[in-house]
């Protein structure tokens, strides 16, 4: 995945069974963002792989004041890349979890 300067990681073990997972997002390289992020902490949240989109969460983060509106695409892409990786991995381990 492209280095967006925003890091998104799993905040818990993913056994591939639950549709909602905990993710943690933080800014690794503020210079890659257009606006100044409000906080330099790690933001943890749950994400439903089946019902929600990364754009939903990115928009909510903007509305909650964590990021500037102009960074909504970067934040959404960072989450999307991580979610894609999780779903790819789940596909691979699916035979084991059934």
């Amino acid at each position: 995945a492209e280095d967006t300067g925003v890091r998104v990681e799993l905040a818990e073990e993913d056994h591939g069974r639950k549709s909602s997972i905990a993710l943690r997002l933080w800014v690794e390289d503020p210079k890659k963002l257009k606006g100044k992020p409000k906080d330099n902490g790690a933001i943890e949240f749950t994400f439903d792989l089946e019902k929600e989109t990364p754009d939903d969460v990115a928009q909510e983060m903007i509305e909650s004041g964590f990021f500037h509106e102009s960074d909504v695409k970067i934040v959404a892409k960072s989450i999307r890349d991580r979610v894609a990786l999780i779903q790819w991995r789940r596909e691979r381990i699916r035979p084991l979890t059934q």
Binding site: N40, A42, E60, S64, G65
Partner: peptide, 27 residues
């Protein structure tokens, strides 16, 4: 306890904590 919580109007909770030292990128 340096956790802060922000709840978005749509109901999602965001919990903010310090980034683990080991995860910060070298300058």
């Amino acid at each position: 306890n340096s956790l802060t919580q922000v709840v978005h109007s749509a109901g999602r909770r965001f919990i903010v904590s310090p980034v683990p030292e080991s995860r910060l990128r070298e300058p």
